[in-house]
């Protein structure tokens, strides 16, 4: 457990450094970690002991968006949808703080404020995983190739559901960079063009053998 905790901490530090030291304005970074779905092997009922490789949530760092009053907002969500998001955040706060009905460090502010589209996208991402070869991270990993989508048309026109979902939630750029044992994904609500600087940083932060 101590090793696992240390690994989580350094993963968080690397994701944070990646975003905070970047010239561009990234909204979030996620590390999709290569894992094996042991449950899938048990469920097949055919005695097949091979386990399915998948990319599961390793860790994530959410920075948020810069306030730009002139920026065109995506389609506004309904009051009911916003209420649903707030309720989920309140419940998650309660879950994390021990189920006592309170929130993290007390106070209700965090559950009553609007949950932005990119916050919601990041939260929902925690529940997702990708079979190797499927989805944006899965394709990047199986092909050992960076996927860089910039502009809402590129996201909306992608064959990957995750990219289309990202566009709906206001992202303008999504990038998946494969590493030795997973994929680093970054998203931004601004258009960021492909550059080798980011890929070099990911390479040096996330590939231990380099």
């Amino acid at each position: 457990p101590a090793h696992s905790q240390a690994n989580e901490d350094t993963l968080q530090q690397r994701l944070q450094a990646l975003i905070e030291c970047a010239r561009e304005s990234w909204t979030y970074a996620v590390f999709w970690q290569l894992s094996y779905d042991f449950a899938a092997g048990e469920d097949d009922g055919g005695g097949n002991s091979s386990n399915t490789p998948l990319l599961a949530w390793g860790d994530g760092y959410y920075k948020g968006e810069e306030e730009k009053p002139m920026k065109k907002k995506p389609t506004p969500i309904s009051a009911a949808e916003q209420e649903h998001r707030k309720r989920v955040v309140r419940e998650l706060n309660s879950l994390i703080s021990g189920g006592g009905g309170g929130t993290v460090n007390g106070g209700d502010e965090a559950g009553d404020e609007e949950v932005t589209d990119t916050e919601w996208f990041f939260l929902v991402s925690m529940t997702q995983s990708f079979i190797n070869g499927s989805g944006l991270p899965g394709q990047a990993f199986s092909n050992s190739q960076t996927i860089w989508l910039s502009g809402s048309n590129a996201l909306a026109g992608s064959s990957c559901e995750r990219a289309r979902q990202g566009q709906v939630y206001g992202l303008e750029t999504m990038v998946c960079i494969p590493t030795e044992n997973g994929v680093v994904e970054l998203g931004s609500s601004e258009i960021i063009h492909q550059n080798s600087d980011l890929m070099d940083k990911v390479n040096s932060f996330f590939n231990p053998s380099n």
Binding site: G60, E91, V104, G107
Partner: peptide
């Protein structure tokens, strides 16, 4: 929300804590 796996709890706690800090400083 019992389906949130235990392993992701740390990320979730961090996200919620930082969100609270952002809202407080806004």
């Amino acid at each position: 929300i019992p389906s949130v796996p235990q392993a992701r709890k740390a990320s979730l706690a961090r996200f919620l804590e930082k969100r609270k800090e952002r809202l407080m400083s806004a």
